[in-house]
């Protein structure tokens, strides 16, 4: 009767889970892209990136509540997060570039607390309501008879589009050239006359906007509440360590790897344990091991490539 010891996993279920892993991965990418850019270009560890994700979700929930438009909500999320990011960069982060990582961690951790309690002050302690737009609600039937939520397909589409756009931005535009130059040699591009502090603010705001977008998109199928950003932040750090710090391509590959490992691990490991344990302890042991899976992946990647899959520097 249980899901089952002997029969192989149906192909449709497997395909659905791969889609789930992909969707999780591309949303992680939106978080990780900003984080990796900020670390790559400015050498800054920004723990408050999860707060920007939360700000995006709260901005989206309030605008969606007031106007009923999901599209406006997404715009509001990106704007609010970008403004918050730019402000934080100008007021706080700017003073930290020359300091060591411990000071940065302390200051940005303080920002998490300030943003969390500030949000509670404004919106209260109870979760907010944000729903997916009617246009994207409900399931669609994919080839092979898989019923899959339309909204999650849209998330995959949006995530991949953003990844493509970001890739083009980095490789094809002047801003992208400056970002890459900034990663390689900060002093030199400043000496060449590029306004480095403005570049930093732009990169920070761009990263923040992506986090805000992720918060709004994910908030619609999860819960919009204080503290929602921190669990995602941890995963985003795992992603950039796997992908290689500073690499957008690495962030994309790392995010999808983490998404697939986490989703498929959660399903296959308990089934695997069921081969030699009773269902209850198999569920137990499998679930425990599944929650470790991405960290095991990270350890394995680091042993194989200490700078991450696409990391240029150590």
């Amino acid at each position: 009767m249980t899901l089952d010891e002997t029969s192989p996993m149906p192909l449709a279920l497997l395909a659905e889970q791969v889609l789930n892993g992909l969707q999780f991965g591309v949303m992680l990418f939106l978080m990780a892209a900003g984080l990796t850019l900020i670390f790559g270009v400015m050498g800054l560890i920004n723990l408050a990136h999860g707060s920007l994700y939360m700000i995006g979700a709260f901005a989206a929930a309030s605008v969606a509540g007031a106007t009923g438009s999901f599209l406006l909500a997404l715009v509001a999320a990106m704007t609010a997060a970008a403004v918050a990011g730019a402000l934080v960069e100008l007021v706080v982060i700017r003073r930290l570039y020359a300091r060591d990582h411990l000071d940065q961690v302390l200051a940005t951790f303080a920002l998490i607390l300030i943003f969390s309690e500030g949000t509670r002050w404004v919106f209260g302690s109870f979760p907010l309501y944000l729903d997916i737009p009617d246009m994207l609600s409900g399931p669609v039937t994919l080839p092979g008879g898989i019923e899959y939520p339309r909204y999650r397909l849209a998330l995959i589409g949006i995530g991949l589009t953003v990844a493509l756009g970001l890739g083009l931005l980095i490789t094809r535009t002047r801003l992208g050239i400056r970002i890459r130059a900034g990663e390689n040699d900060r002093e030199m591009i400043a000496a060449l006359g590029v306004d480095i502090s403005r570049l930093y603010t732009i990169v920070f705001a761009l990263g923040a906007a992506l986090a805000g977008l992720a918060g709004a998109l994910v908030g619609a199928i999860q819960s919009v509440q204080v503290g929602m950003g921190e669990p995602v932040l941890i995963l985003a750090f795992v992603v950039i360590v796997i992908g290689g710090i500073g690499s957008i391509k690495g962030a994309l590959v790392g995010a999808i790897l983490v998404g697939l490992t986490d989703t498929l691990g959660g399903i296959f490991l308990p089934s695997l344990f069921r081969l030699f344990l009773d269902p209850s302890s198999a569920a137990n042991a499998g679930a425990s091991l599944a929650s470790m899976a991405i960290y095991i992946l990270m350890a394995a990647v680091l042993i194989w490539r200490p700078t991450g899959l696409f990391g240029a520097r150590g």
Partner: peptide, 25 residues
């Protein structure tokens, strides 16, 4: 007789994988 018994991660926010298993069970 439960058709399936799952322990999810504490704090987990995405249940797509679990919902797919419920559907298949």
């Amino acid at each position: 007789d439960p058709a399936g018994e799952l322990y999810t991660k504490l704090g987990q926010k995405d249940y797509a994988a679990e919902i797919a298993q419920i559907r298949a069970s």
